[in-house]
Design a protein around this nucleic acid. Structure first.
Lengths: 387, 387
DNA sequence: ATATGTTTGTTTGGCAACCAAACAAACTAT
DNA sequence: ATAGTTTGTTTGGTTGCCAAACAAACATAT
């Protein structure tokens, strides 16, 4: 609602956000940054100190050369004030990540999945045991704020996995299953793995200043996440951003999802390998293909050129519709990009109006653990957003 | 900032928005709706009455059957408190629309453009004269809040027309030109015609409850507007939503923008007519083509089927990326839709995952004047949005 | 006709949050 | 030592909201 106490809530949130983004600072700094008086800032800081979310430091001002006046008392976030969990349920392994109140990683655990197409109940049990173990290691388990969970597939807003081909799942009410098993620990959001990965990648590639971007997570399939004005595009049911399923014409090099000519049927791992074999090449895994590339295999190079051309076509579609500042490539298949960069850019550019400035195309600097980290980061970022 | 007076600002805005959306109501109604006490509501209403944005009505409660208690004093927006202008600069005519404070249309004026590829200065002068005329007819010209202007082309966030093929314009600093000529009347936003049309169409097709939708404005080219979570997608430079320029493969039936296989090269007016002539048909204008269709011309029917298939392909792309609840078709070419509906839906559906629920496809109920109305509506809606 | 009940709108007193200004504290520079 | 500067606190005043009491304007029952 709109009440005087709401003003205080907002100002406390703004103060916390400043401390999170800009590191330790004094009450007077906060007052200047937030446009409040020092007295008000003091009052707000008093509340935060009492709540335990902020601490006074004894460390002296690092650059207090030529500074007159009374020295400031620096304030910083209390790292132990909260823990945010993020998890990834993948076909090969289950990962659990824990961030502290500052967003620093505290823990990253991983368990391999032995069977293919594991039952949902088995995966829930695996993750739940990892969570139980971690929580048991905490001195105060009440600081755990909750957990976000990602799966490689299509998830609706109600927390149901509609389809997750790598896991062989269809119509699994995963959020409810996890909530029941892990109660009272709240399972906050069930999300697509690409969205989670994007949260981690974006944190590195510009953070909050990056407001319009597209991320592609290229593995067995191609996942996507569209960032528009700083927000992840969800769509009416939560299915937006399924870049891999875009129909871009033709029939594709393989058929992953059942949609003829879907983007991922040209650009995902299986598509590359299928095309390479079709041309007489031999490679069972992406690593094999990469080795051939590095050795200058002409067939492999030709296949990469094709791959890059289709990648550029998809990028042209995204650029036309969304006008992003950057397109960020993640996942193992993105390692092919340096070999096809010029072809990709040419393919992209000839499909755009000359007036359009090209988006910058960047390779994500984060590895496979990014998905679990991103899931946790989204929880962290939410608590520092304005109410 | 976040100050106690900000609370009052927000609550006044909320009260105005309620009165705008739900019509006349009492102070007590407002208090209940906004979650405030009657005393606070009274205080807010007193401010609004003094500002002149709200009036007390003498009209009795329309359905005061079986109602006990003291009768309410109904409040309503003062229609004369403000005027919002919207303009359309088109290749065939210039339109000016004026809305009152309630959003009701007060005036819609139109002047034909005789020359093709008119100079920007000529168009600015035409519009400025129309605005001057209208403002002169007002008893109090200080109520004019400003004007939004739309052009058929690509506009950046700084208010420059980068290209407007129907007008033959490139790199015109139109917003500054208009601001200079019309000062002190503020020219607020320069926008794409599809965005303006979308504002008017959305008002009819669900209003604020429609939060994820795509609008196609199909005329000589195909313009687009993407609504995501209630907001128009702008992109980093304001170029997002250029649906007509999406490269969907192939070479197209004609080449409007210079992009091979762009969506509008299959689906815009010129594409339809070019394809029809290529197949031996004769039609110079869309009206001719429609007549043939109504008479059961088999060539025309076949061409519409092709058109519909490509339309469906574009819709599949949009649905995959954006997951909208509706796709709204506007512009004269959308009149073809009934003849190709089943083909379009089939083309759409076979390119989507079976889990996806199809967006509802609707024909816009608004005519060519929608663009000017929408431009004004966007100004109106902004003033009723929360600060 | 009178009394009772209900709903509206206003008034009064109190609380929370902010600001402005004065003040005390803790330092640097001369 | 003294003056100057910056920090953090205290005090008094304003604004906006709420809770509760009250007055006004009706309908209905007796």
């Amino acid at each position: 609602m709109a009440t005087p106490t709401a003003v205080r809530q907002i100002n406390e949130a703004r103060a916390l956000a400043r401390l999170a983004n800009q590191g330790p600072m004094s009450r007077a700094d906060l007052a200047r940054d937030l446009g409040l008086t020092r007295s008000t800032a003091s009052s707000i800081v008093a509340s935060l100190l009492e709540a335990g979310s902020v601490l006074e430091t004894n460390e002296p001002d690092p650059d207090r050369a030529n500074k007159t006046g009374r020295p400031a008392i620096f304030l910083r976030l209390n790292p132990d004030h909260a823990v945010f969990l993020g998890a990834e349920l993948g076909a090969r392994c289950v990962r659990l990540c824990a961030l502290d109140f500052r967003g620093e990683m505290r823990e990253l655990r991983e368990r391999h999945v032995e069977i293919s197409s594991p039952e949902p109940t088995v995966m829930v049990q695996m993750l739940a045991e990892m969570v139980d173990d971690f929580v048991a290691s905490l001195t105060d388990r009440s600081v755990v704020r909750g957990m976000n969970v990602s799966v490689p597939g299509v998830v609706n807003l109600a927390g149901e996995v509609l389809r997750a081909p790598p896991l062989g799942w269809k119509h699994v009410p995963l959020k409810d299953m996890l909530s029941d098993r892990l109660a009272p620990l709240p399972v906050m959001t069930l999300m697509n793995d690409a969205d989670a990965f994007a949260a981690a990648a974006l944190e590195i590639h510009g953070g909050r200043s990056l407001r319009d971007a597209v991320l592609m997570l290229m593995e067995d399939g191609v996942g996507g996440c569209i960032l528009s004005d700083g927000q992840i595009l969800k769509g009416s049911q939560g299915f937006a951003g399924e870049i891999g399923h875009m129909p871009i014409g033709g029939t594709g090099f393989c058929n992953i999802t059942g949609i003829d000519g879907a983007f991922e049927n040209y650009t995902a791992r299986r598509a590359i390998l299928a095309r390479f074999r079709e041309q007489g090449g031999e490679a069972d895994r992406l690593g094999d293909f990469l080795t051939r590339l590095q050795n200058g295999d002409t067939v492999a190079l030709a296949v990469v050129q094709e791959w890059a051309a289709y990648l550029g076509k998809g990028m042209a579609l995204l650029t036309t519709l969304l006008n992003p500042t950057s397109i960020i490539l993640g996942g193992r298949v993105s390692l092919l990009f340096p070999y096809g960069q010029s072809e990709c850019l040419a393919s992209l550019q000839r499909r755009l109006l000359p007036e359009t400035t090209l988006p910058s195309i960047e390779l994500s600097k984060i590895g496979p653990e990014g998905t679990a980290i991103g899931a946790a980061l989204m929880l962290h970022n939410e608590t520092f957003a304005l109410p």
